[in-house]
């Protein structure tokens, strides 16, 4: 019995040490990436390629999901607001939920599973097939040439995707609320505009999506770079990217929300 207890605690201890170790490693990796971003600045073509693969290729899923989320919000919001006789506030409800929370968070979750997993798999495979080592032997720094452009591509794409998600969502809410159900068009927009504050809501949502983009891209790149060079290692790393980034997004969202909206 005693033995089991000791084993249990030593297992926990090992995991904690392992976790702290990894955290330090991630930080160093991130610092290196930032330090060696000069190549990305002098050769924007590299970053543009990565914006294409993480941004443009995620566009469809983001836009369609945004539309559907907005439409669901329109239906559900209408049903709830109707009982209080304030259907006019549907625009407020849809816009505030999207701009403050759902836009950045859901877009980031989709981004993690669409673009993040792709980044991890790509870099993990490059490592498995010794392409990263080959780069090093060609006197080309893989962090500067491979990691940094993907990092900036992700960081730039994410806020734009979140904004597109929110706009598509508002449009979806408008379609259901105004076009389908028949909430007054003017009230829908004017109440929304009166309640949504640019600095407080839109800018804060934008900041959130930037932070999420930063976190997801870092995790995805690190997991790929750190993956054991086997097929199993890469597949595990890809799964870990999605799981870790999703949890990180939700936790960060809580922290950021607590900071941003505490007084209201």
């Amino acid at each position: 019995m005693m033995r089991i207890g000791v084993n249990f605690f030593s297992a926990i201890g090992r995991r904690v040490i392992e976790g702290v170790w990894r955290l330090g490693y991630v930080t160093r990796f991130l610092m290196l990436t930032l330090l060696r971003s000069c190549t990305s600045l002098t050769r924007p073509g590299l970053v543009i390629r990565e914006i294409y693969s993480s941004g443009v290729l995620s566009l469809i899923i983001i836009a369609v999901s945004g539309l559907f989320v907005g439409m669901v919000l329109g239906f559900q919001g209408y049903e709830t607001l109707k009982t209080y006789g304030s259907e006019q506030s549907l625009g407020v409800l849809v816009a505030l939920s999207l701009v403050r929370e759902l836009g950045p968070v859901v877009a980031a979750l989709l981004f993690a599973s669409r673009a993040g997993s792709a980044i991890t798999a790509e870099i993990g495979l490059m490592k498995t097939t010794e392409q990263l080592k080959a780069l090093e032997m060609m006197a080309i720094d893989p962090i500067a040439r491979i990691v940094a452009p993907r990092f900036w591509g992700g960081v730039i794409s994410m806020p734009l995707l979140a904004a597109i998600f929110s706009v598509m969502g508002v449009f979806g809410g408008y379609l259901v609320g105004v076009v389908l159900i028949g909430v007054d068009d003017g009230a829908f927009w004017s109440q929304m505009q009166a309640a949504v504050d640019v600095r407080h809501d839109v800018v804060n949502g934008f900041i959130k999506s930037c932070v999420f983009g930063f976190a997801v891209t870092t995790i995805a790149l690190f997991e790929g770079y750190d993956a054991p060079p086997t097929a199993e290692g890469v597949s595990r790393a890809t799964t870990r990217t999605v799981v870790t980034s999703s949890l990180t997004i939700l936790a960060l969202d809580f922290v950021l929300t607590a900071f941003m909206f505490k007084g209201v």
């Binding site: 490059m126 097939t129 010794e130 392409q131």
Partner: peptide, 9 residues
């Protein structure tokens, strides 16, 4: 020259 070529795929 790497074992399996390590060409950029």
């Amino acid at each position: 020259l790497f074992q399996f070529g390590a060409l950029f795929t």
